[in-house]
């Protein structure tokens, strides 16, 4: 174990280096997706703009997770735990969202500070 030869043979079972061409390929794909999301944000897509941006972001996130973060080779327990955190975030956002919509008017009509300057038409 003590020798410092770098052959792949002495890699212990928990050591799986990711192939370098794959890593570079993933990076290029990420750059491409970034440019894509910039381009789509310039096009008038109305209500689809946001979902498209999120889909692209999620694709990028998936690439980073799978290859840069070695999830592809990792123990499924680790992956499961990590991904289940997203479930809890969804729950947090979902339940809160379900509620807060119903009392927005009360918040909007609450007196603000500093008092808004009344806007006058005349200059």
């Amino acid at each position: 174990m003590a020798d410092h030869s770098h052959s792949h043979d002495d890699h212990p079972p928990f050591n799986h280096p990711a192939p370098i061409p794959l890593l570079i390929g993933v990076f290029l794909a990420l750059v491409f997706l970034t440019i894509l999301t910039l381009v789509t944000s310039d096009i008038e897509l109305a209500q689809f703009a946001f979902p498209i941006a999120m889909v692209i972001a999620t694709a990028k996130a998936a690439l980073v997770c799978a290859f840069f973060m070695h999830m592809f080779w990792d123990k499924s327990f680790n992956v499961l735990f990590f991904l289940s955190s997203l479930l809890f975030v969804t729950l947090f956002i979902g339940m809160t969202l379900l509620d807060t919509g119903q009392y927005q008017d009360d918040i909007d009509s609450f007196p603000r500070e500093p008092e808004a300057t009344p806007v006058v038409a005349e200059q």
């Binding site: 809160t96 509620d99 807060t100 603000r112 500070e113």
Partner: peptide, 12 residues
């Protein structure tokens, strides 16, 4: 709420 915030959100 004085600055447009949601105090019930804190409780959530």
């Amino acid at each position: 709420p004085k600055y447009g915030g949601d105090p019930v959100l804190f409780q959530h």
